[in-house]
Structures are given as structure tokens and as C-alpha cells.
């Protein structure tokens, strides 16, 4: 099933190279397309209006005149995921908010980026120890490009993160956008036998999702019936709960 994706990618690269050769033979140079494309892209990152707690205040402060995020072309905070390139997760993500965040992320068009702002979205922050309601790090739900520690981080820190993201974007190439799309699929770092599937994914998609189950051959497990596919938005299923429980007991010494 992964061959389908690979074939797609190689075919796309072939098209690009043939097109490039054709244009170059006619006196048109394509070498600067990436530069131009990335220059335009990285200087107009539109963030989504997404603030769940106190980090949101710092984010607003960043966009206000003292710090002025518009120097980097990111002043246009969009109130819809469909027009935004970046989601700054400014604040604690709870279990109740998690499905909404994943859905918003999925609604954003590619290429899309995530800045995890503040301790809560990096690791769970002060809720990391004993919480019943907080997600321990937003990277358990969506892939993160830049982490900004702090509780909350200063506006300078957020601007630094934005500049880092710009640097990252400038290094990317238009050719490997498929690969980038892969990297930016929402993923959940689950244990063995647990995979998050968004609504409406096909079996081919599942392989890409399965990459997240680290160190396990997901396709093999699926063949052997060790893994069950669960459809639906943000629904989870575990098949080896007892194994995890044992591991946790070992870890804690209980």
C-alpha cells in the first residue's frame, strides 16, 4: 500500500524534471522558483486565531504595535482554518478541546505549520504531573514545527519562533511538497496497536498514519489481526492495554 504513495511521488518528480528540462531547453531557467516561492510564502504566514488561555494574551501582545508581528507579514490573524497557514496553539489543550483542534488542523490547506506556544502545549506544563483533563503536549495530536517554552513566553520568544519557522520554510523545495504534506499530516504518537484515524481515511492512508506507531510493522500487525482500525474523528482504541499497564507498573515500581 505504501507503494502507491511512492509511485505517486516518483511520477510527480518525473513530471517536474521533464517540465524543467523542457523549459531549460527553451531558454527558461527554473532554478529560482523555490527561492521566489519560499520568499513569498515565508513572508506572509497567516496565523489562525486560536488561543485557549493566557498565552493568547501574549500572542495578542505580539500582534500589537509594541512588538508588531506585521514586520514579518503575519499580522493577518484569520478566524477560519481555511485561509490560514499557521496555527499557534496558545494555551492549554484539554480533552474537550482536543477534537476541535484536530478538526481545525485538518481543515487547514497544505502547506500548514504549527507553533506550540507555552509549556502547556509543549509537555502539558504544570498539568503534566497529575491531570485528568489536559493533553500532555499538543504534539500528541498534531505535528509541531517550532516549540516555544515559557509560561507564558514573551512576545520576543514568539517572534523568534516565527523567524525560525521562516528559516525552515526557506529551506524547503517545491519539488518535495508531497513529502512535506506527509510530514504535516496529523499524527498521534501512540503505543503499539494504537493509531488515530481521521474521518474518511482510506486503507492506503492508514499506512501513512501507521508510521506513528514507532518500531512496529503496522501492516504486518494488521495482517495478523493484532490491530483494529477504528474510524471516526479522534476516537482511540487500544488492543494491548494490559501490556501498557504492565510497563507502567514497572516504570513506577507499583
Amino acid at each position: 500500500m505504501s507503494n502507491v504513495a511512492e509511485a505517486d511521488q516518483t511520477q510527480e518528480n518525473k513530471i517536474f524534471t521533464t517540465l524543467q528540462n523542457l523549459l531549460e531547453s527553451n531558454g527558461i531557467i527554473c532554478s529560482s522558483v523555490d527561492l521566489l516561492y519560499n520568499w513569498a510564502r515565508s513572508n506572509s504566514i497567516w496565523p489562525m486565531t486560536f488561543a485557549t488561555s493566557c498565552c493568547g494574551i501574549e500572542m495578542m501582545s505580539t500582534s500589537a504595535s509594541n512588538f508588531d508581528i506585521s514586520r514579518f507579514g503575519s499580522e493577518v490573524f484569520r478566524a477560519t482554518p481555511r485561509q490560514s497557514d499557521l496555527v499557534i496553539t496558545a494555551g492549554t489543550i484539554t480533552h474537550k478541546m482536543a477534537p476541535a483542534l484536530v478538526r481545525l488542523y485538518e481543515q487547514m490547506p497544505e502547506p500548514k505549520y504549527v507553533i506550540a506556544m507555552g509549556a502547556c502545549t509543549v509537555t502539558g506544563g504544570m498539568y503534566e504531573d497529575r491531570t485528568y483533563s489536559v493533553v500532555r503536549g499538543v504534539d500528541r495530536l498534531i505535528p509541531v514545527d517550532v516549540y516555544v517554552p515559557g509560561c507564558p513566553p514573551r512576545p520576543e520568544a514568539l517572534l523568534d519562533a516565527l523567524m525560525l519557522l521562516q528559516k525552515k520554510m526557506r529551506k524547503e523545495s517545491i519539488k518535495d511538497r508531497r513529502q512535506r504534506a506527509e510530514l504535516h499530516k496529523p499524527k498521534v504518537r501512540l503505543g503499539p496497536g494504537e493509531v488515530l484515524l481521521p474521518l474518511g481515511t482510506t486503507d492506503e492512508e492508514f499506512v501513512r498514519w501507521g508510521v506513528q506507531a514507532e518500531g512496529y510493522n503496522v501492516t504486518e500487525m494488521q495482517k495478523n489481526g493484532e490491530l483494529e482500525l477504528v474510524r471516526g474523528n479522534c476516537k482511540f482504541r487500544h488492543e494491548r492495554a494490559d501490556e501498557r499497564e504492565r510497563a507502567r507498573k514497572q516504570r513506577t515500581g507499583a
Binding site: H95, E128, D129, V135, R189, E194, F236, R237, H238, R244
Partner: peptide, 19 residues
């Protein structure tokens, strides 16, 4: 009910969020 003294979180759907 999370604020009860005897509350223990053993919901299998939330395994992914374990520490």
C-alpha cells in the same frame, strides 16, 4: 466524576495521553 476522592482514571480511550 474527576473531583471525587476515589476517582481513578482508567478510561481505555485515554491511554494515548498517559504520562
Amino acid at each position: 466524576y474527576p473531583l471525587r476522592k476515589d476517582y481513578k482514571q482508567d478510561d481505555p480511550r485515554l491511554v494515548w495521553n498517559e504520562r
